[in-house]
Amino acid sequence: MTTPLRLAVIVSSTRDGRFGPVVGSWFADVARQRPELDVTVVDLAETPLPATMSHHPSPEDAALLGAVTPVFAAADAFVVVTPEYNHSFPASLKNAIDWHFTQWQAKPVGFVSYGGVSGGLRAVEHLRQVFAELHAVTVRDTVSFHNAGGLFDGDGQPKEPEGCGRAAEVLLDQLAWWSSALRDAKTKNPYAA
């Protein structure tokens, strides 16, 4: 039996009144329907990271990192659920990215974005550059919600699930392929950054 692929879904917004948990919960539920995936949600609002970068974290900072770093290290793939703030992604996400390095290497990253008229896609374009620097592989297809607040019902489900459901399946297909291929490759030949 093949070991399930470990997918970390990162809910990146930490703002009061944020919409990210609605989108992240929906996507995680879709991903959990796939037997080849073992899904863990990391909500950055619930797992805060130190704000000050240090090569030698204090014991308090190390404890904060201990809630996130092992999940990132164990993951075979990531999906970043992100809004768009000022044509880019949230500072909380940049902080989570910057505290880690090897945890991203040779792993695929997908994106579920949301926002106003752009649906968070400008944030995704910035993130592609950041993850390329970290030796991660970003998958092409995304799930994007334009004017997201009006697209979900009171139970946190999309009002029109067909289109976003298909987009999620395409994204998950690509992540599963890359995750499997990269995990097998790293087993045979460790990745050298």
Rank of each mutant, 00 (worst) to 15 (best):
S88Y: 11
S88N: 15
Q103M: 11
S58Y: 13
V41W: 05
K159I: 13
T40Q: 09
D38R: 08
L121F: 05
F152I: 11
P158Q: 15
V41N: 03
T142G: 01
L93M: 06
T69I: 02
V80S: 00
P161H: 06
T142S: 03
A51E: 12
H55D: 15
V112S: 07
P35M: 01
L134G: 00
H135G: 00
V81Y: 13
E133M: 05
S118W: 05
M53H: 14
A91P: 02
A148N: 11
R166V: 15
L127F: 07
K159M: 14
M53E: 08
W104L: 04
F72H: 08
A73S: 14
G66H: 08
A74W: 12
G66F: 08
A132D: 06
N86F: 13
A62E: 15
P108L: 02
D153S: 07
T138I: 06
G120A: 03
Q157Y: 11
S144K: 07
D141E: 10
A148G: 09
D76M: 05
V137S: 01
G156D: 05
A96G: 07
L134Y: 04
A148I: 13
V112Y: 14
T69P: 02
Q129S: 14
V130L: 00
V79F: 00
P108N: 02
H126D: 09
R166A: 15
M53N: 04
L44A: 03
P108E: 03
S54E: 09
G115P: 08
K94C: 07
L44M: 03
